[in-house]
Design a protein around this nucleic acid. Sequence first.
RNA 1: CGGGAACUGGCCCAAUUGGCAGGGCACUCGGUUUGGGACCGAGAGACUCCGGGUUCGAGCCCCGGGUUCCCGACCA
Length: 410
Amino acid sequence: MRQSKYFLKTSKTVAKDDTSANARLLEQGGFIKKEMAGVYTFLPLGLRVLAKIENIIREEMDAIGGNEILMPALNSKENWTTTGRWDSMDILFKIKSEHGYEYALGPTHEETITPIALSVIQSYKDLPLAVYQLQTKFRDEARAKSGLLRGREFRMKDLYSFHASNEDLEKYYNEVADSYRTIFKRLGLDALYTYASGGTFSQFSHEFQVELESGEDTIYVNDKTSEAKNKEIFTEEDKASGVYRETMACEVGNIFNLGTKFSEAFGLTYTDQEGASKPVIMASYGIGPSRVMGVLVEKFHDDKGIIWPTAVAPFMVHLLALSGKDEAVAAAADKLYTDLTAAGVEVLYDDRADKMAGEKFADSDLIGIPFRVVISTKTLAEDSVELKPRNIVDASMVKINELINTLNNV
RNA sequence: CGGGAACUGGCCCAAUUGGCAGGGCACUCGGUUUGGGACCGAGAGACUCCGGGUUCGAGCCCCGGGUUCCCGACCA
């Protein structure tokens, strides 16, 4: 992508009262644009990162038999009154149309998927099944805060599984937990498997928490097991045991045993081998890709900008042409961009003719693409470019015809 | 939802006691410049969040509303 034609403009300044690192750096770097408190547009650069995060999640969901679907954000009032959550869920956005109809904006989709499952699940032979979606969710949070960490409109992957027995559910539940471990590892995050209260659904649930100074949750980590307990279930006894370390964290995923709450509410039953009708047992599993994006910035940045993990970086290489009036450099940069792109390398090419070197460097550090490649009169004299990983201070000279090879080996 | 702070050109900020709305960034034109956000000259861009009020005169004071950020509560 040529930067001169990209829908991107970085900013030198950012409002000083917006103190969270992810809000500042993502807005300054042109990844996102705030529409309202807790509501953001994902600009081209930010959308690329979001798509990478979501694709990793998609691959892992597919790998455990998840069927991808897409449910509507606009929900019927009827389904929400069926479960009683029309009145009990205080973060539910409710809409009254000009024609007098009422709707909810989906904050989660048990109310939608369960009636849908009625048409697919009738027999024990239909179970187990799992469906998921990557979708935009709406929650009327009392206080949106910290950029992408707590929004009123945000991205969520929600997976729902359906089972004939608790044993089968437990088996799949653990399979999803393992899948989540893989996902967060691929995303470059250390996520702690955390025991939490089950809220209204069951006695226990599990969260995946990333240690973060700016996180909103207090958790207690057992470093020997690499597991943690949520504040809600942390007891005096746990405290006395001396094995737990208190820390702040941000929840990036959760898994829930729903039991038969929703299947009973909507009459989702199956016929077992003996011909008896039984309620389907369900579980739900969430990950917030947009929040993950915020957490990644909180964890991976320095005073100059973002340092994206390669798996989610918007581009792999930031090619800076410091050509000035040197036509040979401009031509060599163009060719290098074409060659890299043809070789399958994702390149953001700073071909802007009217920008000073310093501004290009500053932008590059801010945007945080993993590898910076600089071509200038100086490097071209040696048929070389300068290669510098974003997270390393020193740069190295690489022959132009060896660059693709070098990049493939890092 | 309680408490605090703020709201001035696209962005970041000034404006003395209530007295001509200004600077920087970005933008346009001309020129210079090209290894860490460069420089010279010229130019364009504003119902100072909205609605009332006080006053000869309001960005500033008063009343009401809105929005944003921060702290807390909340966070199936």
